[in-house]
Amino acid sequence: MGMTVSFLILAILTLAGGVAAMTLRRLVHCALALAVSFAGLAALYVNLGAEFAGLAQLLVYVGAIAILIVFAILLTHSSETELQKVFSPAGIAGALLALAVFAVLAWAVVSSGAAHSAASVAAPQTSMREIGFALMQRYVLPLEVIALMLTAAMIGAVILAVRPTSGSEPAETQAPRNPELRA
């Protein structure tokens, strides 16, 4: 049993979105390609039988993170900067390093038993009921920890991102910290 056609199409969509997101010059196009890649990955999860994870991926990544990235691009005026210098000076070295990492990973996958074991497992039947029971019984402690961490992260993000209003902050931080850039 080989890979199904739908898996191949979704994998190509996901990878094309990822490559486009990392190579396009205009940042808004990059954000769009990133959203396509995330959506393709969500479809891959559904294809592999993890419907709940696919829906969570769609909600969180396409619905929240991609939109957050678009907001960040617009707020930092990154779409208005010149398009000549999008890659860093050490870009060639970084690309070669990534290529080497892929070579090692692909060698490990191909030479391991995963490429040859012919065991085709039937799709596991997971109902929402089982997922709910697992979340409330076996994984209840990680669930609570992640809830606490999400709350802390949201408070931290708001504290970091909110512009300090003049008058409510102490005088010593009022002075421009980088006068030549503020001018």
């Binding site: 990822g18 990235i69 390093l97 892929f102 990973l105």
Partner: peptide, 28 residues
């Protein structure tokens, strides 16, 4: 096998992300 296909797609995606994180100038 399907498992090896998934692992190859995932390693390609990881390499693309790594290349982007190492080569792009914009922090976003």
């Amino acid at each position: 096998t399907p498992l090896a296909g998934c692992l190859l797609v995932s390693s390609l995606l990881f390499s693309v992300g790594l290349a982007g994180a190492l080569t792009r100038r914009n922090a976003i």
